[in-house]
Design a protein around this nucleic acid. Structure first.
Lengths: 351, 351
DNA sequence: TTGTATGCGTTATCAG
DNA sequence: CTGATAACGCATACAA
């Protein structure tokens, strides 16, 4: 026999209260662990709530206490193009794990980079009051969002380094350029002297810091970079930058890319021109995408603990929101993962 | 001079009404496009609202009209492991684009596959009322969620095929096995006769349908598969399945994988055992991950319009929720993208 | 075309 | 330890 679905008048806190023989206030107290309820009645209340399948209506809670129990994650498609997630998926999953465990929801926002639109979007975000706080990425060197958010009173944590001079809650390795120097050292040890760097646009903080770290590492051994190109984070941009680099009078023997995706695209391009990696040219990426290992040759890259980045950022935000959570501490240092795409510089090898 | 931040008493509909010289109801009418307001006053109201930066409080709207203007997307990490998104990112971005344009938010939920936990999770999802509807993936052959959701009265759309006999709103190619037969035909044309299939677990609908489609395609030319392995969607599983297949007395000359990620891992494993792709063995993937093109050799795969899948699913859900949207129509047919990983069968080639 | 009154489900304040 | 009551900000039925 199929059960008849009842009209299902919403079960509310009042129903739980009535069936437990207490007042709604008592029920509320129990479910907000505010104490002041005898153990016996608390047990009874919980039992009834469970039977009735009652959960607090998030809308009512949000209205009454102006806490939505949700945080927003802002994805910026301008960074990597419209068909790539602008962050490793582990970051996202790391965020979700922390968030969900505390009863928070994760609201996804996808923004492009239109400066005029953006400011409106953030204002609406604050006015809508759908989220208690924000997780953001992809800071620009000139970035009005930080002041705006402060003015709006919307708590936020940046995943990545802040622009110079800007003080804002964020999660990043210390120093923020960590990893790039290991790449360069690795290539130097392999005998490379003509190293090219192809990274993201210098208008963004992360790429700018990486480019600077590269230049510094090169300068510290009294070398000069063959080329440094700053461009989009897209694969197309990586390819044309690589092409451009190969047209210099002194062509590089090694490429350092600002992301694995760029490195993979670059390797693909080089292969297409008859160049063999790493025999002719070495390639190093950044971030250790899941697939870097499966490339042929495997991609040498800088691995960061992405899930930790996400988790720490989420923890930081929740702490700001008043959730009692321990300080997550510093991020693991990035580490170089050497695979097949980097090898001895050709001029040493061939004699 | 820095401006003094005022205590910022929340600006509400009443403020807008007062400043416009109308009643709150009038303002409400305007912002719900319910008409019955003169053009002049509407303009005035909008102007004032804009000046005050007022937006409806989503919490209040949700409470009053029991519409949260948000949909949930359920990601199941059991499918691909904890560090891989269980869907191409384009699906997600396709969803977001449709959703956001209609003023809806996208709430992300990450579930594992614990059967007992799952049912509780969905019940809580319904009770919490944080979302008006759900987008779900990864249907199992025996899947209680569909009936459960119906009982709970929570609208949902499945991305992917429904279990046999289950009628539920979903978005999938017609036929759901489309693409696999093209793979097989392609390999047959290249002279392959010993083809292995390595896909996801048969307890899930999508992998089951693909495995069946493979068997059918093979049978239709009076061949038998060398092996078909059904396993996790993880790379580790793909590798050990490949290893297992290569230990058969008759080793395959071609592998069809249930996903690009599996194919990439499989290729990597084969390469490690000294096998050259496609000279010795051909490899075909499924779904045309962004990086398939950059593999070496490039991965032959079945491309689907992922962003369209996401967009259609979202559109379907919004239509169910009463949003006035045109029927998105059928999905583009999957198409085989031939790259370097598939080539002539070795027994024909070598003579 | 516009205004008034009511309640959505919860939490916080104040009594008891 | 527990209960009554008043908001939270909005949309809707009903009046005007």
């Amino acid at each position: 026999m199929a059960e008849i679905a009842r009209p299902a008048k919403n079960v509310t806190i009042a129903d739980v209260a009535a069936r437990s023989g207490v007042s709604p206030a008592a029920v509320s107290r129990v479910f907000n662990s505010r104490g002041g309820i005898s153990v016996a009645t608390e047990a009874r209340i919980r039992k009834v709530a469970d039977e009735l399948g009652w959960t607090r209506s998030s809308a009512a809670v949000a209205l009454r206490s102006s806490k939505t129990m949700a945080v927003g994650l802002i994805l910026n498609t301008a960074i990597t193009g419209p068909d790539v997630l602008p962050m490793p998926p582990q970051v996202l999953l790391g965020i979700e794990e922390v968030i969900a465990k505390r009863g928070y929801g994760l609201l996804l926002y996808v923004f492009s980079d239109d400066p005029e639109e953006e400011i409106q979007a953030y204002k609406r975000l604050a006015a809508d009051k759908r989220v208690d706080g924000l997780l953001m990425t992809g800071a620009r060197m000139e970035d009005s969002r930080f002041r705006l958010l402060e003015e709006l009173g919307l708590p936020a944590v940046l995943i990545g380094p802040t622009p110079p001079g800007v003080v804002f809650p964020h999660v990043e390795n210390d120093p923020p350029g960590a990893g790039i120097d290991e790449c360069v050292r690795h290539l130097l040890e392999l005998g490379h002297r003509r190293i090219a760097y192809i990274g993201g646009p210098l208008t963004r903080v992360q790429p700018k810091i990486r480019a600077d770290a590269f230049l510094e590492a090169i300068a510290s051994v009294r070398l000069k970079p063959v080329v440094t190109v700053s461009t989009d984070y897209t694969t197309d941009a990586a390819i044309s930058a690589t092409e451009h680099a190969m047209m210099q009078s002194e062509t590089p023997t090694a490429f350092v890319y600002g992301s694995d995706l760029m490195a993979m695209a670059g390797m693909h391009y080089l292969r297409g021109t008859g160049i063999e990696v790493p025999r002719d040219i070495s390639v190093v990426g950044f971030d250790d995408q899941r697939l870097a290992e499966y490339m042929n040759p495997g991609l040498t890259t800088v691995a960061r603990n992405s899930s930790q980045r996400g988790a720490n950022a989420a923890t930081e935000l929740l702490r700001i929101l008043g959730v009692d959570l321990p300080d997550p501490g510093p991020l693991d240092a990035p580490r170089l993962v050497v695979r097949g795409s980097s090898g001895p510089a050709p001029d040493l090898q061939g004699g």
